[in-house]
């Protein structure tokens, strides 16, 4: 169903000093419905730029991007967004944050309330609807962000380092929650992260991106996300298959960073 199609995408930023940066060059891929794609790479590789283009916050300078054969021309509620932190509306309580999307579409009433309560229970916050968001911990706030995004029933969920600000333990729990939601809703997900482990664990597809110009350096098809639904995440992350991939990607990124340093030194 949902099929994201990216074709020869390019993005060039003009700098105030007259120069320019090629944030993305000739990026092409198709993403089938129900997949979870993780984007990984050193800073400046264009992963967040790519996510923002898919979200419609940025217009690419060249190439085309389609969702279900319709070109993406701006932000829309078919693409939900989860940010690292600070994107909740702190003047609204938890339930009103989650119902924000439906309310903006004129859907208010008992039906919406029931759906919101349902979503809150799904993310484990059933009793927290009337709480102020600033009273919640960072992990709980990200649960609210997930629920808020799901309330509009988007086809595609975009996540920009959603777990980047959380401590290690919370992070592991949230990773499992994301997989659980993915399995339950069958949504297509694109997730940006700077953690190799997270990218491997959550992505059933993984792009390692490289900078200057920003591009897809290597692609992986991975089994861990599906396995993670049933198996113990710790054991999975310690399995030989997982650690082997992790080392491979780490050394790939290491090489890139070396190159950048060399480039800057020259």
């Amino acid at each position: 169903m949902s099929n994201l199609s990216v074709d020869h995408l390019g993005m060039i930023y003009e700098l105030p000093n007259g120069g320019s940066v090629e944030a993305l060059k000739d990026v092409s891929f198709d993403l089938e419905s129900g997949r979870i794609l993780t984007l990984l790479g050193p800073s400046g590789c264009g992963k967040t730029t790519l996510l923002n283009i898919i979200a419609g916050f940025l217009a690419p300078t060249s190439g085309s991007i389609n969702l279900n054969d319709a070109p993406i021309t701006g932000p829309g509620q078919d693409r939900g967004m989860v940010f690292q932190q600070g994107a909740l509306f702190e003047w609204l309580n938890v339930a009103d944050n989650v119902s924000f999307g439906p309310r903006m579409n004129g859907n208010e009433g008992p039906e919406t309330d029931a759906m919101v309560q349902d979503l809150l229970e799904t993310v484990g916050l059933g009793d927290f609807g009337q709480k102020a968001v600033y009273e919640l911990s960072g992990g709980m706030q990200q649960r609210v962000a997930l629920a808020r995004c799901l309330a509009n029933d988007p086809e595609l969920i975009l996540m920009d380092e959603p777990l980047g600000a959380l401590d290690a333990l919370t992070r592991e729990k949230m990773q499992s929650l994301i997989l659980e939601l993915w399995d339950r809703t069958q949504k297509t997900i694109v997730l940006v992260t700077h953690s190799v482990e997270e990218a491997l664990f959550l992505g059933d597809r993984l792009f390692v991106m490289a900078p200057r110009p920003g591009r897809i350096e290597r692609e992986y098809e991975l089994p861990f996300a599906k396995l993670g639904l049933t198996e113990d995440p710790r054991e999975l992350k310690n399995s030989p298959e997982f650690t082997e991939k992790r080392e491979e990607i780490l050394s790939l990124i290491w090489e890139m960073e070396e190159q950048i340093m060399g480039h800057e030194g020259a």
Binding site: M81, F83, A87, L88, M104
Partner: peptide, 26 residues
């Protein structure tokens, strides 16, 4: 914060709605 405005856009809010429901309370 730009991410708040972006989040509201992605949730289907119009410019007017963002002005009233995000920018003003913020």
């Amino acid at each position: 914060r730009l991410s708040k405005v972006h989040a509201a856009y992605s949730l289907g809010a119009s410019k007017q709605q963002i002005l009233r429901n995000v920018i003003l309370p913020n």
